[in-house]
């Protein structure tokens, strides 16, 4: 069952351009879209821009939504593309190395371990986007590669690097046997 949806009648009205129905679509998906955007983008401002861009596109194109997949799947793909576009447009510096050096050395003291939220935030834009899209949103490497304009291998290597870092920053590494 879809986690987010709207009634068929609302969808039909939205496709006809009805303002109240379009607002209902916005209300149904604004939180998951914002959450996705905020997890991928560095700032709340960027995430809000992505929400705005996403729903502007939804309002413009909902007449062309054919109902092949779920409405949430369609909206989510638009949101993911807009978020990735935002990353490209902002040309964030990839600060992997900086982050890695800035990360505290792993100790046995669990109090010094980063929490998952902070570790995720510490990943580079690209790595975080791949982790979120693959592990949480459930996109395949092929789909992520398509959205990013890269190869599936790139997506796989970003995911592997991200997990290696998360494991280290979360203090989950165990000494090799």
């Amino acid at each position: 069952m879809e986690p987010f949806s709207v009634a068929d009648a609302v969808l039909a009205d939205a496709r006809a351009g009805d303002a109240a129905a379009l607002e209902a679509v916005f209300r149904a998906f604004e939180v998951p879209v914002y959450n996705l955007a905020r997890r991928i983008c560095r700032t709340t401002e960027d995430a809000e821009d992505v929400v705005q861009e996403t729903f502007f596109e939804v309002c413009r194109s909902i007449g062309r939504y054919r109902g092949d997949g779920s409405l949430w799947g369609w909206v989510r793909t638009i949101a993911s593309s807009k978020a990735l576009m935002k990353l490209r447009r902002n040309k964030y510096r990839d600060t992997d190395e900086l982050h890695e050096h800035a990360a505290p050395a792993r100790r046995e003291d669990t109090a010094l371990r980063m929490d998952l939220e902070a570790a995720l935030e510490r990943l580079s834009e690209t790595s975080r986007a791949v982790v979120w899209l693959h592990d949480v949103e459930g996109y395949t490497h092929d789909e992520i590669a398509g959205m990013m304009g890269r190869t599936p291998s790139f997506s796989k290597s970003q995911l592997a690097r991200a997990h290696a870092r998360l494991r280290r920053w979360l203090g989950e590494e165990v000494p090799a046997a």
Binding site: V31, Y34, R39, C59
Partner: peptide, 15 residues
């Protein structure tokens, strides 16, 4: 992880 929610309503801008 907890769901992050927008701090303010953005429908007016989109509309």
């Amino acid at each position: 992880l907890p769901t992050l929610r927008p701090a303010h309503d953005m429908w007016a801008v989109v509309d």
